[in-house]
Nucleic acid binder design. Structure first.
Lengths: 232, 232
DNA sequence: ATTTAAATATACTATTGAGTATATTTTTTA
DNA sequence: TAAAAAATATACTCAATAGTATATTTAAAT
C-alpha cells in the first residue's frame, strides 16, 4: 500500500522535483531495506523451524518490531514465503546468466557455471532448501512465477550441454538425461552441505565441477584451471 | 496399548495355545493392516498437501473412520509422520542390502544396487519426498532413529565404492566425494520424477545407472547388461 | 505552530485443528 | 444368553496463531 503511494509521489512532475526525488529515493531505500530484513529473518526461521513452525510474531520478535509492522510490508504469511523462495532462485539465475557469458570453450563455461552457481547455492542455502521444501504451500500464482524461473534455469543448463555436445566438446550417450542429473547435483548440494562439516566450500565446489564434467564426459579439471578458479 | 495386550496374550502358555495363537495372529494381522492403511493414506496426503497441511480428520475421512480411531493406533500426529518417513528409508535399506548381495564384479553390484534402489525410491516416492521435506518436524528421538538408517544407507554405498576402487574396478580422483554425489542422484530422483512425465521408469533407471557409472569412472552399460536387468 | 498523513503498536477476533472425555456399539468370553 | 472387554464414534476443550480494527506516536507539509 504505502509502497504504491511512494511510487506515485516519485513520479510526480512538480517543480523542485529533484529534492522530492532524493527524499523519495531515501524512503524507497528504507522501505526496501525493511522488506529485505524481514525476508532475511524469515529465511533463517523457515530454514530452522519450517514454514508452518514459524509464526509471524517470531519474525517480528527477531527484528524487535510487532506483527502489524510485518503485515504492512507483506499481505500475508504466504507472501513472505514467496519472497523467500524467489530470492534464492532469482539470485541463482542471475549468477547462472553471468557465468554463461564467460568466454572460452563450452567446457570452460560449464566449469564457471557450476562453480559460481554452486557458490551462490551454498550462500543462499536457506532460501533454496526452503524453496525445495515448501513449494506446495505457495499459492498457485506465486508458485507459477517461481516455477517459471526454475524452468528457465534448467533450460539454460540444458542448452549449455546441448551446445557443448554439438560443438563436439562433450560426450553424451543417446537420450541423455545429463542436464537433469546436473540440475540434481546443484539442487542436492544445499540439502546435504553443512558449513559445520569437514569439507571446505572449495573442496565441495571442486567436487561439484568434477562430478559435472564426468557426467557429460569432459576432461577433468587441471591443476592450473583449479588454481585459476579458486584464486579469483 | 491394545497392541501390547495382544503381544502378552500371544505369549501365554496355556493348553489349547494353538487356537489362541491363531486368533492372536489374526488380530495382530488386522491391527497391522489398519496401521498400514493409516500410514498409506497419510503418505499420500503428506505428499500432496504437506505435513502441516494435512489434518488427522482428513486422514480419517479417507479411510471412512473417525479421528479417535486414528489416535488409538498412533500416539499423535508426529508418530504418523515418523512411521511414514521410516517406511521409505527402511524399504530402501532392505533393497540396498539385497542388491549388495548380488554376486559378480563390484561394477555388477553397483549396477544392481542403483537399479533396484532407484526402483524402490520411485515406488516409495511419496515417503521419500515427505522424509526429505519434513525431517525438521520429527521429534528428536524418531529423527535420530531414522537418521541412523539413513547413515547406514549412505555408509553402505560409500563402502561399495571404496571396495570397488580398492579392487581397481573404479577410477576415482583424490578426495573423491562420489559416494555423496551418488547418494544425491538417488535422493534427487523422487523429487523430480513424475510418473506423468514423458520418461518411462526404465529410461530413468537406465539414466541413473549410467550417471552412477560415469561418476565413478566405470565402463558404460552394454546392451546385453541393459536387456538383462530390464527383463528380469 | 498546526494540521495532515504516515508509520508503528496495542489489543482484539475468529478459526482451525490437535488431542480427549465420554458414550455407544460390537465382539469375545463364560 | 449375560457380562466383560474391546473397538469405534460423538461431542467437546483448549491452545495457537493468522489476520485486523483501532489507538498512538512520529514525521511532513503548510
Amino acid at each position: 500500500m504505502s509502497l504504491e503511494t511512494e511510487v506515485k509521489s516519485g513520479s510526480s512532475k512538480k517543480q523542485g522535483g529533484d529534492a522530492k526525488n532524493v527524499k523519495g529515493h531515501l524512503k524507497r531505500e528504507l522501505l526496501t531495506l525493511k522488506r529485505n530484513r524481514i525476508i532475511e529473518e524469515a529465511t533463517i526461521l523457515f530454514f530452522d523451524e519450517g514454514y508452518a513452525g514459524t509464526t509471524i510474531e517470531a519474525i517480528a520478535d527477531k527484528l524487535q518490531v510487532t506483527k502489524p509492522f510485518i503485515y504492512s510490508y507483506f499481505k500475508n504469511k504466504e507472501a513472505i514465503l514467496a519472497a523467500v523462495c524467489e530470492t534464492g532462485i532469482s539470485e541463482a539465475l542471475e549468477v547462472l546468466q553471468s557465468a554463461l557469458s564467460t568466454d572460452g570453450t563450452y567446457r570452460d563455461i560449464l566449469i564457471q557455471t557450476l562453480w559460481q552457481v554452486g557458490d551462490i547455492v551454498i550462500k543462499r542455502q536457506a532460501c533454496v532448501v526452503t524453496y525445495l521444501r515448501e513449494i506446495k504451500k505457495l499459492n498457485p500464482k506465486d508458485a507459477a512465477r517461481i516455477l517459471q524461473k526454475r524452468k528457465e534455469f534448467d533450460h539454460k543448463i540444458a542448452k549449455l550441454i546441448d551446445d557443448g555436445t554439438s560443438a563436439g566438446e562433450f560426450d553424451l550417450g543417446p537420450r541423455a538425461m545429463d542436464a537433469i542429473w546436473i540440475g540434481g547435483l546443484i539442487s542436492w548440494l544445499p540439502v546435504w552441505f553443512s558449513a559445520a562439516g569437514k569439507l571446505s566450500k572449495n573442496d565441495v565446489l571442486f567436487g561439484l565441477v568434477s562430478a559435472g564434467l564426468k557426467l557429460i564426459g569432459a576432461a577433468k579439471m587441471s591443476e592450473v584451471e583449479k588454481n585459476n578458479i579458486t584464486g579469483q
